[in-house]
Design a protein around this nucleic acid. Structure first.
Length: 502
RNA sequence: CGCGGGGUGGAGCAGCCAGGUAGCUCGUCAGGCUCAUAACCUGAAGGUCGCACGUUCAAAUCGUGUCCCCGCAACCA
């Protein structure tokens, strides 16, 4: 089903540290999905940003002897720099210290307060002096916290429990609300127990880096209540009604599995309290585990996948990340698997196919894409598969199965390699140039279609392919290749990586 | 018995919901081709689908039990 508007978000990243692979993965995934939707003609709004309040930020700033704001201002460009490097085409970059966001948080708080969903109460629990925060009973029992004491503190609470039934009903009525299904079950399991209320304040005496509660100046807002609201600040809640109405509710909140509860429980109840519709989908992906990467002398001691970008190009890293992580599962990052993917998929199959067709067309047709003659069953079969690829990829993308989409495309590329093997245009050309032309046209057109489908994942390399094919059409329909187009000479698209034998 | 997910040839996954020849990628071995980035193509070896019972003409697929791994379990991004 085609939608006209697609509003996708990443979490806003917490700036207590430098950006890492987890941030990069979620953001690339959002970018790839955005690009697929744009390619389908959808209007897209892609929001990402930074979560800059809270205790951890305050502590990180103190450790560097900076003010919290200075600390954030210093880290923000690092994220922006990485997004640039990763070719991320976001539409808006939000920082929770921006005026527009502070205004939304305070007005939202006031609204919820006025509606009677906020009350003050004494909270008593175990407090870790070293960590400067309350810890859970489980954490206390784990014994990994020293210097703990019972502490009683007055705080403001949001009546989250009030919306428990409504949330459960919503999840039941909207099977796609929390994905994958496994996570949905997890949330439903969590909601089987009574849902308590949420503490949404922190006394300034203890933690001052946050947004003032509008109804009590001695407190700042709990960081999650602040952060989640970014999703409505972005499209213009309270500031630009027209824009907000156009974009909200979000199509997809992409998140890591570690922040499922906040997004699937806190956030929806907050939206209920604000009288706003819920996002269509909250999608929790898995984690990148740093597997046992063998250290190879010739490849250097690359331990951070982000370092691969400078070495092997942003496109191959984007491809690897999209291809290697399955749906909502965890994935292992290893140098071996990266090289394997790169060589087998990108160098041997994709890049090599380009060389084959461009080389053959160069030799036999002076580099001009030949006219195709009569299509035999073999050509019809390739064409049929190329046409079928479009709905396949659309389906995989709509289900967030980027690994499946990549595999679908690679299957066609392999099939074209096979087709060439059987048709052997390098032989046919000697006796029947017309027939060879038909074969090469078919292979090249199929390759073009694959490049178009791979474009959202590998924008640089796929643009290069289309350029080599003389500004070939960007459509996924058969026939986008210009007849008589002059192919450009080129280097290997993905030079094979040599791995020394162990 | 807190809730949930998973255990499939050397590795990583699909198949399970709607039972009926166990599929894909990588790796290994043999062969072919030689247009191409020592790439590409074909074939082969390799799995009692964690284990045990049960339902059924028939189970990786449904049910029960059991072992192992993992995730979640509220104020912590």
């Amino acid at each position: 089903m085609k939608k006209n508007k697609f509003y996708i978000t990443t979490p806003i990243y917490y700036v207590n540290d430098k950006p890492h692979i987890g941030h990069a993965y979620t953001t690339i995934l959002a970018d790839v999905l955005s690009r697929y939707h744009r390619a389908e003609g959808d209007e897209v709004f892609f929001l990402t940003g930074l979560d800059e309040h809270g205790q951890k930020v305050q502590q990180a700033a103190e450790a560097r002897q900076l003010s919290p704001q200075e600390h954030c201002d210093d880290l923000a460009p690092r994220f922006l720099g990485l997004w640039e490097k990763l070719e991320i085409q976001y539409d808006d970059f939000i920082r929770t210290t921006q005026k527009r966001h502070i205004a939304v948080v305070q007005q939202a708080l006031q609204q919820v307060y006025d509606a009677g969903d906020v009350y003050a109460d004494e909270y008593e629990g175990w407090y870790s002096v070293a960590e400067e925060r309350f810890i859970t009973e489980t954490e206390k029992d784990s014994g990994s916290f020293r210097d703990i004491k019972k502490l009683k503190e007055r705080n403001w609470f949001f009546r989250m429990g009030k919306y428990q039934k409504k949330l459960i009903d919503h999840i039941h009525e909207h099977p796609g609300f929390i994905q994958p299904g496994q996570r949905r079950n997890e949330v439903l399991g969590f909601l089987r127990q009574p849902l308590g209320d949420l503490c949404i304040s922190r006394p300034k005496a203890r933690m001052g880096w946050g947004i003032d509660l509008p109804f009590d100046k001695d407190y700042v807002t709990y960081v999650w209540f602040d952060a989640l609201l970014n999703y409505i600040t972005g499209p213009g809640y309270l500031a630009d009604q027209k824009s907000f109405k156009k974009w909200w509710p979000a199509s997809v909140h992409l998140i890591g599995k570690d922040i499922l509860t906040t997004h699937a429980v806190y956030w929806p109840t907050m939206l209920f309290a604000l009288g706003l519709p819920l996002p269509e989908t909250i999608f929790a992906h898995g984690w990148w585990l740093m597997g046992k990467t063998k250290i190879s002398k010739s490849l250097g001691n690359i331990v951070n996948p982000l370092d691969l970008i400078d070495e092997y190009g942003v496109d191959s890293v984007r491809y690897y990340l999209m291809r290697e992580m399955v749906l909502g599962q965890d994935a292992n990052f290893t140098m071996e698997s990266f090289i394997k993917r790169y060589n087998s998929d990108l160098a041997n199959d994709f890049g090599n196919l380009l060389n084959r067709v461009s080389g053959l067309i160069g030799k036999n047709f002076d580099g001009f894409v030949p006219e195709h003659g009569k299509m035999t069953d073999e050509e019809d079969h390739i064409k049929e598969e190329a046409v079928r690829l479009d709905p396949k990829v659309k389906k995989s993308v709509s289900e967030m199965r980027l690994d499946g989409a990549m595999e679908d495309i690679l299957q066609l590329i392999r099939q074209v390699n096979k087709y060439l093997e059987y048709q052997a245009p390098w032989k046919v050309a000697k006796t029947d140039l017309g027939r060879a032309g038909t074969i090469l046209y078919t292979a090249t057109e199929a390759l073009r279609i694959c490049a178009v489908h791979l474009f959202p994942v590998m924008p640089f390399k796929c643009k290069a392919v289309l350029d080599i094919l003389d500004n070939a059409g960007k459509g996924t329909q058969w026939g986008g290749l210009k007849k008589g187009a002059k192919l450009k000479s080129h280097e290997a698209l993905f030079p094979r990586l040599e791995v020394p034998k162990q």
